[in-house]
């Protein structure tokens, strides 16, 4: 096989078959995928969550992850935010001709490892190759299916006044790690993306039996944008405290340098949970036992209101409205 992806690899012919069998299946094979039918046949029952996302991050390899890891985490995390246990994933590549097969193998092995950790099987997929310049190296689309455990009723519309707002850890790590590697910006930092599968953490939280009303992973647009979406969806006022929100020194420093506010910088391995106040401590205790929730902390609470909004108490004790991200911070971070 050649060292790079050629247009013929996407033709559906012999070369395409060899690529699928020798490169892709060798890394990902499972019972459903191995049948090689036109579609995956699955047994599903009960309430099911279904979601899709496309990944166009640049650069495709970044500190703490790569586009493959992101493509598994992003979609399984979206399932987990509905309380679902991720079961199945589709995986589609759009590859620029000339893409090194060794890089593809690296990405596939990262997909395999992340899927294993998230407990999800890749059951269907597709590969297309396009002319040089028609995509930037490689884009991935994944769709995922998950099963919602009985009793879980988690939605951005279920937030109630009195709920505690729990954040699983420090914000802004992914966005700043990516920006540090961008052409033209390039600054040196030890910082790694927080990109991680959160389904295990969510399962631990649900297992406490706590009344978890809403979960969301603050990806593009950062924590500020996510909280605004939720306050609109549930029609509530969300009050948070600046001092309670963990931000790494590296992120704080980079944000000062670049003129960003960490509240608007992307995360790929964090979640916010809205939990009934009596249950907050038990949820936090469960989260802190999981490596992806070790820094979990209450950052605020929910109040009743006529005008849904997000308000933050600043370090000086003043309060200010937190709006959604306006304009673009920097494109293509996921």
């Amino acid at each position: 096989m050649s060292d790079t992806i050629l247009l013929a690899h996407g033709s559906g012919g012999k070369m395409a078959h060899r690529l699928i069998e020798e490169v892709i299946l060798s890394d990902l094979s499972n019972r459903v995928l191995a049948r090689m039918d036109d579609s995956a046949v699955l047994d599903l029952s009960g309430r099911t969550a279904f979601t899709t996302d496309s990944y166009v991050v640049s650069p495709i390899f970044f500190p703490g992850g790569d586009i493959g890891k992101l493509a598994v985490c992003g979609t399984t995390n979206d399932l987990a935010m509905s309380g679902a246990d991720p079961l199945y994933l589709s995986l589609s590549f759009i590859i620029e001709e000339g893409f090194p097969i060794s890089d593809l193998k690296r990405i596939l092995s990262s997909i395999r490892n992340t899927a294993r950790e998230a407990g999800v099987q890749i059951v269907t997929g597709d590969t297309k190759v396009v002319n040089r310049g028609n995509v930037d190296k490689l884009y991935i689309n994944t769709a995922g299916i998950g099963k919602i455990p009985s009793g879980a009723n988690i939605s951005g519309a279920n937030i109630a006044p009195g709920d505690k707002v729990i954040l699983s850890g420090s914000i802004g790590d992914h966005g700043i790690a990516i920006m540090s590697k961008r052409e033209g910006l390039h600054f040196s930092t030890e910082l790694e993306s927080d990109c991680a599968p959160l389904s295990g953490l969510v399962a631990d939280m649900i297992a406490t039996g706590a009344r978890i009303h809403a979960l969301r992973d603050p990806t593009r647009g950062g924590l500020a944008t996510t909280l605004n979406e939720l306050s609109d969806q549930s029609g509530v006022k969300i009050m948070i405290e600046e001092e309670k929100i963990p931000v790494r020194d590296e992120v704080l420093g980079a944000c000062e340098m670049l003129g960003f506010d960490p509240l608007y910088v992307a995360n790929e391995g964090k979640l916010v949970a809205f939990v009934a106040p009596e249950d907050a401590e038990s949820v936090i205790a469960a989260m802190r036992k999981n490596k992806y929730g070790a820094q979990a902390t209450i950052i605020g609470q929910v109040e009743q209101t006529e005008n849904p909004c997000v308000v933050m108490k600043t370090v000086l004790g003043a309060s200010r409205l937190i709006d959604m991200l306006v304009g673009d911070l920097l494109p293509r971070i996921c």
């Binding site: 001092e243 020194d249 004790g317």
Partner: peptide
């Protein structure tokens, strides 16, 4: 010195405001 967090200290700020 980290040049950011020290200059956001809540206690010192309250002292200055007073």
């Amino acid at each position: 010195m980290k040049y950011a967090s020290e200059f956001r200290d809540n206690r010192l700020a309250r002292g200055l405001i007073a």
